[in-house]
Design a protein around this nucleic acid. Sequence first.
DNA 1: GCGCGGGCTGTAAACGTTTCCAGAACGGCC
DNA 2: GGCCGTTCTGGAAACGTTTACAGCCCGCGC
Lengths: 337, 337
Amino acid sequence: MASADGGPATIETIARRAGVSIASVSRVLNGLGGRPDTVRKVQAAATELGYVPNAMARSLRGGRSGQIAFAMEDIGNPVYVAMVRRIQAVAKEAGYRLLLHSTGADREEELRALRSLADRHTEGLIISPIRITRDHLDELSRAVAPVVVIGSLPEGVRLDNVRVDSRVGAAMAVAHLVGIGRRRIGFLNGPLDTVPGQARYKGYLDGLATAGLGGEELVESGQFQTDSGAEAAKRLLARVPDLDGLFCANDLIAVGALRALREAGRRVPDDVAVVGMDDTELARVTWPTLTSVGLGSARRGELAAELLVDRLGEGRDREPRWVSVTPELVARESTRS
Amino acid sequence: MASADGGPATIETIARRAGVSIASVSRVLNGLGGRPDTVRKVQAAATELGYVPNAMARSLRGGRSGQIAFAMEDIGNPVYVAMVRRIQAVAKEAGYRLLLHSTGADREEELRALRSLADRHTEGLIISPIRITRDHLDELSRAVAPVVVIGSLPEGVRLDNVRVDSRVGAAMAVAHLVGIGRRRIGFLNGPLDTVPGQARYKGYLDGLATAGLGGEELVESGQFQTDSGAEAAKRLLARVPDLDGLFCANDLIAVGALRALREAGRRVPDDVAVVGMDDTELARVTWPTLTSVGLGSARRGELAAELLVDRLGEGRDREPRWVSVTPELVARESTRS
DNA sequence: GCGCGGGCTGTAAACGTTTCCAGAACGGCC
DNA sequence: GGCCGTTCTGGAAACGTTTACAGCCCGCGC
C-alpha cells in the first residue's frame, strides 16, 4: 500500500526504509544482482510502499519511452482494425505501448504524429498514408526516429516499407468477374489522387485489357466510404443500365453499392456480380456475402510492426527493407455463378 | 535544420548560441516575457536549430504527461469506434493525446491500463468494463489518477460515471416489436455475468411483462459477437419454430441473427422482425437495414472525455458526477410492418 | 546625485531515474 | 594472517526541463 507521506514512493523512499543507497535500490529493482539480504530488504520495502517506477524519469535518463505509434486515416475503416490488432499484439510482445492517431487523411494531423517522434514521446511510427507527395517523403525521411510506411513508395526512397500490389489485386477481381461470364464490368473507385486509387484504377484497366474488354471505362470515383459508394453506384447504373459486373475499390464502397443495387431492383449476383477489396469483416456480414480481394491487412500490420521493433532494437543500422504481401481473392455469394 | 553536433538541440544548445542562460531560453519559449532583443535572439536560435522540447523532461519536472487513455473491450466493435472518435476529439481539443487499450475484457489487461496511471505515463483513464466486480471497483477507486467509468456502477461508488439505462432500452425494443403485432419474441443475449448482459435481460423481461407476454422466456446467450449471434439464433429457431420477433443484445449479434434467419429461410421482417442494440454503423449497412436501440455511444464518449478533462483541470476536487444518456429506438427495415 | 522599485537575468535546485566510478567487504589461496 | 580477485556498495553525475531566488540594471522621482 502506498504510504501517506508526501506523494508516491520513489527509489529514495525505498532506499531510506531499506537502509541502503538509491543506487542499490535501482540495481535490485532491475535485477542486476546484489547481496541476498540487500535484495530481500529492498524488495520488501518496495512492495510495502507499493512502489511503481516513474516512467517519465526512466525515459528521460534512458532515452526510451516504450511507446510506438500507428497513424492511419480513420479508425472506423475495418481494414485498419485488422492492422491495429496485429500491430498491437507485436508491440505488446516487444514491450511497447501503442498510440493511435486517426488522421482523417489530414496532412496536419500526420505532421502531429511526426512531431511526437521529435519530442521523444514516441520511439517509432508506423504510418499508412493514402496520399504520398514528394513533400511527405521528405518529412518522413527526415524524421528523427524510425518510420515504417504501409503502402507503396516510389523507387529509391530509403524507408522501411510494407506493400501489397493492389494493382494486381484489382486485375484479379476483374479476371474473376470475367471468369463467371460478365462482360460489362464497372469500377467504383476512391479518389484518383491517392496511391490506392491510382493503383486500383490501373489494375482495373489491366484486367479489362487482358480479357479483351478494353476501350470502354465504366468508372465512377468518390470517397472510400459507404455512402459515397452508394451514390457512385447509382450514377454508374444510370449511365450503364446493362452493367453485369462491378468491382469496388474497397469493401465500404462495395457495401454502399450493394445497397444501391438492391434499391435499383438488381439482384446480386444474378443481374450484377460484385467484388470488393480488402476482405474486411464486413464482407462476411453483408447479404449476399461479398467476394473480396484480400490485401493481407493483418499480415501487413504485423510485418510493419516487426520491422519497426527490429529497427528499434537489433536492426538499428540495417538497410531499409521492403516487404510485400500478395493479394488473394476470396469468393463468396456476390459472385456465385 | 537540426545541427550535426551531438544529438538533438536542447535549451542548452540554444542558450549557448544565443548567448543567454538556459533559464531565459525556457522563459522565452514559454512566452513568459523577456527583453525584446533576448526574445528575438532566442527565437532565432531555436528555429535555426530546429528545436523541439523533450516531452519526457518536461513531464518529469511538471508532472504532466499530456496523455489520457481509453480502455475498451475490443477495437473491432463499432460501438467503440463511435466512442473513440468523440473522445479523441475532446482530448485533442484540451491538448491531450489519446492512448487506446483494447483489453479483450481481460482483467489483466485492464490492470495494465491502471498501472500506466501509477507510472505517470497517463494522467487519466476512461474505462468501459463489461464486467464489474467488487474487486474491480476497489482497484479503480484506489487508482492514483482520475478514472471515468462508462457503464453502470453500483450505488455509492465514488467515481465519475457515464451511464445509459439499457434495461429501459431493451424494454423499448420489446415494446416496439409488440407494437407491430409480434407475440413470440425471442432474445439473443451476451454473457449473463456481464453488466450489459444483466441489464438487457431484465429489460427484455420488463418488456414482456408490460405486454402481458410474460411467463415464457425465449432466450439464448452467447458472446456479444456476430458468429456467436448466428449460432444462438439457430438454437433458438430450433426450439421455437414459430418465432416472430427477435431482440438482440447488440448489433453484432443481430447481424449474425440476420444471417442465420436467412439461411433458415425466414424472411425479415415478414416472418421474423429483428431489433438490435447500440445503433452502430452496421445497422445502416445490413439488408434489410436494422432497427436498433441507440445508446448514445458517441455522446457517452464525449461526456466521459469532458468529465475527465474537467477533473484534470478545474474540477480536481469536485464531487464525483454521474451523467446519463437516454436510449432511443431507430426504426429501419427489419421491423417494417 | 542618490535611492528605490520593477523588470530581466543567471545560478542553482529540483523532478526520479540509471550508471560510472572508486572504494569497501568478502572469500579463497598460499 | 596477508594478499589478491571478485562481488557489492554508495556517492555523484547525468538526462532536459521548469522555477525559486537573488542580483543586476535601468529609469524614475525627489
